[in-house]
């Protein structure tokens, strides 16, 4: 069934049910607030960071946390807190870009694979098999290396590796939907394949895409930081959470916070995305929805009566 859009209401009932289920969980609200805070800090880095993240100060090498340097200084005397704040720009926003690219590649491929089926599907699925037979980020490392070390190559590499599961999710939904009456009806009135895919089938994939994208954000943050950690991502002196940890790794016994603190931020951010993604998946659980839909309907009827 397609979502019914009521006149005079900004959002469809379906969407409002989802939002209401989401907002009933305190953890979800906390996660959303936390992410908003991180975004603001990242955007406003020049205003918030106490010092310049690039200024080398040979008079203040590897200082422990003090009032002047809340998180101490690194091996070049740079303020670690400022570097972490600036580093959030890459570590938080680049993964969003990567997931955007993953959606842009994965969704059309999944639509085509699921809609046409047969040989086209077979070929596309074998390609995803091949891409997925590289363990972890190893293929991304290779691609990023070939494209030249840097954030941009790392981001592109992660997108080129990451589209497969998105394509499979979309393909699965499309295969279940394409036999239904409304698709047949669209064919009868002469809609082109392209329009059927994007106008009829795609709206049914919105939620699975959203859940997958949410979960993917967490893994891409970890992967991107990992690429920087081993040297194919962000290049010095640019800061991101992976490279700050990599630079601090040489001093883990003297100044452990250099490597540990960026990691805590990664965990917190990834945790927030995972919590939201988890709740979103629950919110789309038909059982829970039906319950809440009943509550909604009762409420609306009451409004009508009054």
């Amino acid at each position: 069934m397609k979502p019914t859009i009521r006149k005079g209401k900004f959002l469809s009932t379906e969407t409002r049910i989802t939002i209401s289920i989401m907002l009933r969980s305190k953890i979800t609200i906390a996660s959303i607030l936390l992410l908003i805070t991180i975004y603001i800090v990242a955007i406003a880095a020049p205003l918030i960071a106490p010092r310049d993240p690039y200024t080398i100060n040979t008079g203040a090498l590897l200082l422990p946390p003090t009032k002047e340097y809340p998180l101490g200084t690194d091996n070049l005397g740079r303020d670690v807190l400022s570097r972490i704040i600036y580093g959030a720009r890459v570590s938080v926003f680049v993964p969003i870009l990567v997931v955007g690219l993953i959606v842009l590649i994965g969704v059309p491929v999944g639509l085509i694979s699921g809609y046409y089926g047969g040989k086209v599907d077979e070929v596309i699925m074998r390609i995803t098999d091949i891409v997925m037979s590289f363990p972890g980020v190893s293929l991304a490392i290779l691609l990023a290396y070939i494209a030249g070390r840097g954030v941009l190559s790392a981001a592109l590499a992660l997108a080129l590796v990451g589209w497969t599961s998105m394509a499979r999710v979309v393909r699965g939904v499309v295969m279940a939907e394409k036999e239904k009456d409304y698709v047949a009806a669209a064919k009868v009135i002469g809609k082109s394949d392209l329009r059927i895919m994007f106008e009829e089938l795609l709206p049914n994939c919105y939620y699975p895409i959203l859940v997958d994208a949410m979960m993917r954000l967490g893994t891409v943050i970890i992967a991107l930081a990992g690429l920087s950690f081993i040297g194919v991502g962000v290049q010095p002196p640019e800061p991101d959470w992976g490279i700050i940890a990599a630079e601090g790794r040489k001093y883990i016994f003297e100044q452990p916070w250099l490597a540990i603190f960026p990691g805590i931020l990664i965990i917190v951010t990834v945790l927030a995305y995972n919590m939201i993604g988890d709740r979103l998946r629950d919110a789309l659980d038909p059982k829970l929805r039906r319950e809440l839909a009943g509550v909604y309907r009762a409420k609306e009827e009451k409004e009508k009566e009054s």
Binding site: G218, I222, A225, G226, F229, A245, R249, I252, F253, P256, A259, I260, G263, I266, I267, V270, L271, N274, M275, D278
Partner: peptide
């Protein structure tokens, strides 16, 4: 969920320390 959210290298550094 916390275990999944942390990078391997970070757990490694924590354990080592």
């Amino acid at each position: 969920i916390v275990g999944v959210s942390g990078p391997e290298w970070w757990w490694g550094i924590i354990l080592l320390v």
